[in-house]
Design a protein around this nucleic acid. Structure first.
Length: 579
RNA sequence: GGCCCGUUCGUCUAGGGGUUAGGACGCAGGAUUUUCAUUCCUGAAACACGGGUUCGAUUCCCGUACGGGCUGCCA
C-alpha cells in the first residue's frame, strides 16, 4: 500500500491539508504501507519561497514524517514535480501520438473573450473545431506554428457520449457524463504540466494505490479517470477517497456581544480593501450594515440572501459577507476569529499574510492530531483520546463521514487540556519553557517543575501557563481591588501585620508548615478561612484565581511572599483610608 | 446558470426499518474544593421538509429546501 500527500507550495499549509496528510499517514501506518510526500510545484506564478520547508516542518512537528519524499529518500524520485518536467512532456507526447490529446493555440485572452460572451463556455468536442488547434488547423500550419516557437498548450481530447465512473471509497459510485467535461489543458504554454497530468503520471509512476484528498478534487477526478483510460492504465488506477471539507465555525458559535462590533469593523475594512472602487466612502455604511447582520445571529444567512437589484454596493457587500462567514475554512478565518488554522506560524509579506499556528498558540502536537483525526472521522466507539498508534490501529476509510465538518476551537482546546493534564512532567516542562522565556524569565528546573505541576490543571494551552500564572515570575501587575476592599479594614490591617510578623519568623516555608501557621493565626484572631485566604491570594497573585495559596507561598519563597504581602497590605490600607 | 456531493442536539458524531435516538465539546444547575481549575452528578438540546415503499420509517426511494465543491494555461 502506497499513499501520498501532495500539497502545492503556494503558502502556508492549512489545517485541512494537514488532516489530509494525517489520514494518508494513518492508513499507511495501519497497513505497514508507505507514506510519500510529493511537492506539486508546477505553478510558477503561485510558488511561494519557504512554503516547501514550512510543509515539511509542519509534518515533522506533528509526527507525520514521510517515508519517501524530497530529502527523505525513496526510489521513486524526484519528488518535486518541477524536477520532473521532461517526464510529463514525454507522456503528453505519447497521448498526442495515440490521438488522445492535441495541440491548442488559443491565447488566454481569446479564451477570456469567449467566456465573457458566454459564461457557460466550455472547450469541448462541440466547439473545438472552431478553435485554433491541431484538430481544426491544417497539418502544415500546425507544424509551422510549433516550429516558429508560437506558444501552445496540449489538451486532453475528451470523447463525447461516454461515462467517467469513479468508485469512491467514501461516496460510492459517482458518474460523470463526458459531454459535461471540457478538454482540460495538460501541458501549459510554459511547458509545465497542469495538476491533472502531473498527478496521474506521478501516481502511476510512484505506484500509488490509494488517493485520499479533499472533496474539492471530486469533480476533476472525472478527468483523471479519463486520463488513466487514455494512457491505458485503467487497471493500475488507484482507489479514490474524497474527504469532506473542513468548514468555518458556525457564526453563532463565535459571535459574542464583545467581539461582534470589532469583527464588523474588520469585515467592512476587508471589504473596502477588496473592492476599492465599490467601497469608496462606503466604510461607515458597510460597517453598520455588517453589524446589523451579525447581531441578528439566527438569521444571518437569510439576511444576506435577499437580492438588492438597485443597490450594487450592498449586493457586493452581501456577497462578500457570505463568502467570509460561510463555506470552507480559509486563511483569514483564524485572524478574524482569533484561533489558529495553521500548524505553525507563518510570516508572509506583512501582516496581511502572517498567521499564528497551532504550535505558537500553545497546542501540543498530539492534542492537535487527536482533534483533527476526529474532525470528520469516528472510531465508532465512545473513545475520544487516542495516541497516534491507537489512531493508526483504529483508522479506517469506511468510518470517514460524508459531510463537511465545522472547525470547533473549544473542542480543540478541550483536547489540548486533556493532554496537558496527563502529559509527562518533564515533557511538559520542555514545551512550557519557551512560553515563559518569551517573557524574559528563565526559571531553573526545580522551580519550573513545581510551577508546571501547580498550573497544569489550569491551562488549556501552553500559552495559558504564562497568562494564568505569570505572577509566579513577576509581581502582579494589577490587583482585584473590588474583592480586596470588601474584606479589608483597619482591624484586619492590624491582624495581618501580625501574620506578616510570624511569617518572617517562620523557618519552614513548606506548604504544610505554612498551612499550620495560618490555621493557628485564624484561631487566634477569630477570623474565618474566607476572611484570610482571599486576601493572601490577592496580595500574592493579584487575582482570586489560582492554585492553593500555601503551595503558592512555598514556590514563591519566603522573601518574595513577605515582600509581596507587605506591599499589598499597604495598598489595601490606602484604598480603605481613601474610602 | 450547469455538473457533482452532502443534510441526526449550537458544534463533532454513534446508530440504523420497530431504540426512552447514545457519546463528546459547549451551555445551565448541583456536589467536592479557602478561590479558580480538576473530578463527579443532573439537566436542556437533534433525525431539514413533502411525498412514496412498508403493518411500521430518523433509517430505503423520489422530489423540494438548505449547505458545500467544481465550472482557469490554480492546485
Amino acid at each position: 500500500m502506497r499513499l501520498r500527500f501532495a500539497p502545492s507550495p503556494t503558502g502556508a499549509l492549512h489545517i485541512g491539508g494537514l488532516r489530509t496528510a494525517l489520514y494518508n499517514f494513518l492508513l499507511a501506518k495501519k497497513h505497514q504501507g508507505v507514506f510519500i510526500l510529493r511537492i506539486e510545484d508546477t505553478d510558477q506564478l503561485r510558488y511561494v519561497p519557504g512554503a516547501e520547508e514550512y510543509i515539511i516542518e509542519s509534518l515533522q512537528w506533528f509526527g507525520l514524517a514521510p517515508d519517501e519524499g524530497p530529502g527523505f529518500g525513496g526510489g521513486y524520485g524526484p519528488y518535486l514535480q518541477s524536477e520532473r518536467r521532461d517526464i510529463y512532456q514525454q507522456y503528453a507526447r505519447q497521448l498526442i501520438e495515440k490521438g488522445e490529446a492535441y495541440y491548442a493555440f488559443d491565447t488566454p485572452e481569446e479564451l477570456e473573450i469567449e467566456r465573457q460572451q458566454n459564461p457557460a463556455f466550455r472547450y469541448d468536442a462541440s466547439i473545438r473545431r472552431r478553435m485554433k488547434n491541431s484538430l481544426s488547423l491544417p497539418a502544415a500550419e500546425v507544424q509551422d506554428r510549433i516550429a516558429s516557437g508560437a506558444p501552445f498548450v496540449i489538451r486532453l481530447k475528451v470523447r463525447p457520449n461516454e461515462q467517467a465512473v469513479i468508485q469512491d471509497l467514501i461516496r460510492g459510485e459517482v458518474t460523470f457524463d463526458t459531454n459535461e467535461l471540457d478538454d482540460k489543458v495538460l501541458i501549459k504554454a510554459d511547458g509545465l504540466p497542469t495538476y491533472h497530468l502531473a498527478n496521474i503520471v506521478d501516481d502511476y509512476l510512484m505506484e500509488i494505490t490509494h488517493v485520499i484528498r479533499g472533496e474539492e478534487w471530486l469533480s476533476s477526478t472525472a478527468h483523471h479517470v479519463l486520463l488513466y483510460r487514455a494512457f491505458g492504465w485503467e487497471d493500475r488506477m488507484p482507489q479514490f477517497a474524497h474527504l469532506p471539507l473542513i468548514l468555518k465555525p458556525a457564526p453563532e458559535s463565535f459571535l459574542h456581544k464583545e467581539n461582534t462590533p470589532p469583527l464588523a469593523r474588520r469585515l467592512a475594512e476587508e471589504f473596502q480593501k477588496k473592492h476599492p472602487e465599490e467601497a469608496e466612502g462606503y466604510l461607515e455604511k458597510a460597517e453598520q450594515f455588517t453589524l446589523q447582520v451579525l447581531q441578528d445571529k439566527a438569521n444571518i444567512a437569510a439576511n444576506l440572501k435577499e437580492k438588492d437589484r438597485d443597490d450594487r454596493q450592498k449586493a457586493q457587500l452581501k456577497a462578500f459577507l457570505r463568502d467570509s462567514l460561510f463555506g470552507k475554512l480559509s486563511k483569514r478565518d483564524g485572524d478574524r476569529l482569533g484561533f489558529p488554522v495553521f500548524p505553525l506560524s507563518w510570516q508572509g509579506n506583512g501582516d496581511q499574510d502572517s498567521f499564528i499556528g497551532f504550535r505558537e498558540y500553545g497546542f501540543l502536537p498530539e492534542a492537535a492530531i487527536n482533534f483533527l483525526a476526529l474532525l470528520g472521522w469516528s472510531p465508532g466507539t465512545d473513545q475520544e483520546i487516542f495516541s497516534m498508534e491507537e489512531l493508526a490501529q483504529a483508522f479506517s476509510i469506511e468510518k470517514i463521514g460524508k459531510s463537511g465538518a465545522r472547525f470547533d476551537i473549544d473542542k480543540a482546546r478541550w483536547f489540548n487540556q486533556q493532554y496537558i493534564m496527563k502529559a509527562d512532567t518533564g515533557y511538559l516542562m520542555d514545551r512550557v519553557r519557551p512560553f515563559i522565556s518569551a517573557h524574559g524569565h528563565h526559571p531553573d528546573d526545580a522551580f519550573l517543575r513545581q510551577f508546571v505541576e501547580l498550573m497544569r490543571e489550569r491551562a488549556a494551552t501552553l500559552a495559558e501557563f504564562w497568562e494564568n500564572g505569570y505572577y509566579f515570575f513577576e509581581p502582579p501587575g494589577t490587583y482585584d481591588d473590588k474583592n480586596a476592599r470588601k474584606r479589608w479594614d483597619a482591624a484586619r490591617s492590624g491582624q495581618f501585620a501580625q501574620l506578616l510578623q510570624s511569617l518572617a519568623h517562620q523557618e519552614d516555608f513548606s506548604a504544610g508548615a505554612l498551612k499550620a501557621l495560618v490555621e493557628g493565626f485564624i484561631q487566634d484572631s477569630g477570623l474565618k478561612f474566607g476572611d484570610v485566604l482571599p486576601l493572601l491570594r490577592i496580595g500574592l497573585a493579584g487575582t482570586m484565581q489560582g492554585p492553593a495559596v500555601f503551595e503558592m507561598m512555598e514556590l514563591l519563597g519566603k522573601a518574595e511572599t513577605i515582600g509581596r504581602l507587605g506591599k499589598a497590605f499597604r495598598l489595601f490600607d490606602e484604598w480603605v483610608s481613601q474610602g
